[in-house]
């Protein structure tokens, strides 16, 4: 478990002070894939570097498995970093080393014996699907292959945690999918905790279990990915979700209001995979005329999420209330526009 308690990080430049992180509290459970999303400058890169102490926080505590790692001395810190893998947007491979030698590098750092190192490298190359490319140099690889080397390298010392710093931002959509699948596989097979920062909502949507949205050095919203997708609260979160379904909640609302000046407009989101005809049954209960005016589905790692806009007319408030209650009883989230 990773716990960040009241993390503050201030950079002092000659002219001014930059508050990159302003009081972040987070706890990340073992074995989960946790996403931190934010626009550039939100402080997420700094925050992820505080987890392995590449950046020292100005104040606050970083507790990993009960141990405050900011209190470790230099040698102990180097040792503990071997158990925290990290991958990067620009891969950061050593061009002077081959694929196999790059993967061997962290094992050399940890003073692992040569024959054990080679055994481990073979295993890792197989795991990330780079058989046959062992002796290639990074310059001969594609972006996706480079990131596979990066992942293999990060896993060499059997870490418990893998930090991903915009790991797919430099890749095309297809390669991004392949890398995300690999990360999901690693998470499952090795039960490794993955913390990923990104500005791509689709990345979070595809593999993360939980999500924190960061803006201006603070966490503005966090929770299960499906819950946040179902009903985003913060404006930054809403903007991110719009990038996914291509619909702006506010815009949709205004357009629908124009089209349907009378009656009630309701936004219903479903997160549970139920076969029940929820809407149909609710209609029966209240005896209202309901039409579906807009609908879409988002696919998240914890299942599909449906959003439906309904227009209800010619009813009274009591009937509306019955209708909404009937929907909510079945686990749908209802928002009156």
């Amino acid at each position: 478990m990773i716990e960040l308690i009241d993390i503050v990080k201030t950079f002092n430049t000659k002219k001014s002070q930059i508050k990159a992180v302003r009081g972040v509290n987070l706890s990340i459970n073992d074995g989960e894939i946790f996403g931190i999303i934010g626009y550039s400058g939100a402080g997420k890169s700094t925050l992820i570097r505080i987890i392995n102490q590449l950046e020292k926080q100005t104040s606050g505590q970083v507790i990993i498995d009960g141990q405050d790692i900011s209190k470790l001395d230099h040698k102990e810190l180097l040792k503990s970093r071997q158990k925290i893998g990290m991958i990067f947007q620009h891969f950061n491979l050593l061009w002077s080393r081959t694929v196999a030698q790059n993967i061997e590098f962290p094992l050399e750092i940890a003073h692992v014996e040569k024959n054990i190192r080679q055994e481990k490298v073979k295993e890792l190359i197989k795991m990330v699907g780079l058989e046959g490319r062992e002796n290639a140099y990074p310059s001969e690889l594609s972006g996706g292959q480079k990131q596979r080397v990066g992942i293999a390298r990060a896993l060499a010392n059997d870490p418990k945690i893998l930090l991903c710093d915009e790991a797919t931002s430099a890749l095309d959509p297809e390669t991004t999918d392949a890398i995300l699948q690999l990360l999901a596989k690693i998470n499952k097979e090795l039960n490794i905790t993955i913390v990923m920062i990104t500005h791509q909502m689709e990345v979070v949507q595809k593999i993360c279990n939980r999500l924190a949205v960061m803006d201006d050095g603070k966490i503005v919203e966090q929770g299960l990915v499906k819950d946040i997708f179902a009903s985003p609260q913060n404006s930054t979160t809403k903007r991110f979700i719009q990038t996914i379904n291509g619909t702006d909640v506010e815009k949709t609302r205004q357009e629908l209001k124009k089209l349907y000046p009378y009656g009630q407009l309701v936004r219903v989101s479903f997160t549970n995979n139920s076969d029940e005809p929820i809407i149909a049954r609710a209609i029966k209960k209240c005896n209202l005329e309901v039409s579906i005016v807009n609908a879409h589905i988002n696919h998240t790692s914890s299942g599909p999420l449906g959003v439906t806009y309904l227009h209800v007319s010619d009813g009274d408030d009591a009937q509306y209330e019955i209708f909404i209650k009937a929907l909510e009883e079945k686990g749908a989230k209802v928002e009156i526009l």
Binding site: L78, F88, N92, L94, S96, N157
Partner: peptide, 28 residues
């Protein structure tokens, strides 16, 4: 590349290891 030095730090490399295993070979 500063990134390779950062990556080595993240792996827990000591300064001496960074000089001998990253800095010198990468600038050779």
């Amino acid at each position: 590349d500063k990134g390779t030095i950062e990556a080595s730090k993240a792996m827990g490399a000591s300064n001496w290891q960074i000089i001998t295993k990253v800095l010198l070979p990468e600038s050779f």
